[in-house]
Simulated scan of single mutants.
Amino acid sequence: MRESRFADRDEAGRVLAEAVATRAPELVGRGTLVLGLPRGGIPVARHVASALAGELDVLVARKIGLPDQPELGIGAVTAGGPAVFDHRSLSQFRLDPERLAPDVERERAEAERRLRRYRGDRPPPVIADRRVLVVDDGLATGVTARAALRAVRAMDPARLDFAAPVCALDAADALADEADQVYCVAQPADFVAVGAWYSDFAQLTDDDVERMLAAAARGPRG
Rank of each mutant, 00 (worst) to 15 (best):
R62W: 04
R153T: 08
E107Q: 14
A79L: 07
A154Q: 06
R113M: 14
R88C: 00
A140G: 04
T141N: 02
E55K: 10
F93D: 07
F93S: 00
L175I: 08
S4P: 05
L169W: 13
G138F: 07
G80C: 10
A217Q: 07
R117G: 11
V194G: 01
F85W: 06
L90R: 08
E105C: 07
L35W: 09
R23C: 06
L37D: 07
Y118F: 15
R119K: 02
L90C: 03
D57M: 08
P165I: 03
G65V: 06
R9N: 11
I74S: 05
V185C: 12
R211F: 14
G54W: 07
A19L: 14
L95W: 09
D68P: 10
T141L: 03
R131C: 12
P82W: 07
A19C: 14
R62S: 00
A189N: 05
A140R: 05
A202W: 00
D156W: 05
E18T: 15
L66R: 09
D86F: 00
R119S: 10
L56Y: 09
L27C: 07
D208I: 01
V135S: 06
P97V: 12
P124N: 08
A176C: 04
F162P: 13
V48C: 04
R146N: 08
P157E: 03
D156E: 15
P97E: 13
R159M: 14
R99N: 11
A79P: 05
A158W: 01
R211T: 12
D190N: 14
R5D: 04
E110W: 12
L149F: 00
T205K: 06
A128M: 08
R114M: 00
R113Y: 10
H47E: 13
D177W: 01
A51P: 09
L35N: 02
P97G: 12
D156A: 14
L16E: 01
V77R: 06
V192P: 02
E26I: 05
P43A: 06
